Amino acid sequence: MDPLDELLEYQPGSALLPEGLAGTVSYDAGSRAVRFDIPSLPAGFSGEITFRAAVRRDAPGNAPIVNTAGVTTSLSSAPTLSNSTFNTVLARSLLVTKKAGSTVAEAGDIVAYTVRVENVGAAPLEHVTVEDQIPAGFRYIKGSSRVDGSAVADPAGSSRHLGWDLGSMAPAAVKLLSYRLVLLAGVPAGTSVNWARASGITGTGSGSVSPPASAAVKVRPSILGDKAVIMGRIFRDRNGNGIPDPGEAGEPGVRIYLEDGSFVLSDAEGQYSFTGVASGNHVLKIDRETLDPALRPLPYNTSFAGVGWSQFVTVPFGGPARADFAMMPAPEPPSPPPPLPPECLPRRRSHRRSHWCRPLPAP
């Protein structure tokens, strides 16, 4: 029997008996004890029993946790005590909460995430870092990271383990990290959970790590099978970075052509999509007759080949692929040159020339 410290919470289903040994496991919430009942133990047997217990979220920092188990038999009711383990609850200086912008998604969808980091300690923290483990089949969208609404550098790390350095945080300070992930064609159906935690360093050099926070998205099977989706947005790019950022208006009613002649119109938010597209290389073109003449498309990467209204797109097997069209204000046409005085105008049957012709002053 193992009575748990009041700061521990037993994790149901976590107890395991040694392999090949019969028995039962129970937990009594009143006495807070985990009980292993083993009818028979062979002579000379050696093994271990295990279970998991979590530290309560409201456990005070620097509190001690002591655990001691006892063994009784049918021959002796007096328990034989095990060694005692001693642990100390780390004082938490950081708390993290995480939210997903969508609870249900499928291949090709984009999900926005927000991570809230708070310094609940009494000391300032340096090099506060958020580490995020994203689910299989999800991919980070480059250029989508924001801290408190301002663009920041893309995270370091591998494709599924991302890390952002938020800098320093004073006591009671809060920072909001946001970013976006796209669901790839091979994303497995079911519930996908990603985890985030924050860490920082105090002025004395000691570290602080937050409890993990998670956000779940239910991935539903795609209705397109092995076909792909090309999606994108026609938008007014106010900051000229080629990425549809929050607050940048979409351009509705713009016709977009695929190379096979099929076309769609952008919706009220400037979004469009082609479904059932085969994998491979494709070409998208904007019908400039449907575009506001005050706008001009911006070729912000090499897929445009220098022309902002036509874009090459490579669609992987099963997709999806994305092709945005960024719009900037069109330059104003140049002013016409000022008129010349009458004596400078060409005359028939005349060989006289004026060497002092000057444009008339503008009215």
Rank of each mutant, 00 (worst) to 15 (best):
L7A: 07
L8T: 01
E9V: 12
E9T: 15
Y10N: 11
S14Y: 09
L17Q: 10
A22E: 13
V25N: 03
S26Y: 02
S26W: 00
S31A: 06
D37P: 00
P42F: 06
F45L: 09
F45D: 09
F51P: 03
V55R: 00
D58N: 09
V66N: 11
T72R: 15
T72E: 10
S84A: 14
N87T: 11
V96P: 02
K98S: 11
G101P: 07
S102K: 15
T103I: 04
A105T: 08
A107Q: 12
V117G: 00
A123Y: 13
P124D: 15
V128A: 13
T129P: 00
V130F: 14
V130N: 09
E131A: 06
D132E: 14
I134C: 01
I134R: 00
P135R: 04
R139G: 01
Y140T: 05
S144N: 14
S150E: 15
A156H: 00
S158D: 14
A170R: 02
A173R: 13
A173P: 08
L183Q: 03
G190C: 02
T191G: 04
S192K: 00
W195C: 05
I201G: 01
G203M: 09
G207L: 11
P211S: 11
P212Q: 12
S222C: 02
G225R: 13
M231H: 01
N241V: 10
P244E: 00
D245F: 04
G250V: 05
G250K: 03
G253D: 10
Y257K: 10
Y257R: 14
F263Y: 15
V264Q: 13
A268N: 04
E269K: 15
E269S: 11
Q271F: 05
H282R: 12
E289M: 06
L291H: 04
D292S: 12
P293F: 06
A294P: 03
R296Y: 03
Q311T: 03
G318R: 03
G319K: 08
S335K: 12
P341D: 09
P342M: 09
E343M: 11
P346G: 04
S350R: 05
S350Y: 03
R358G: 06
R358V: 07
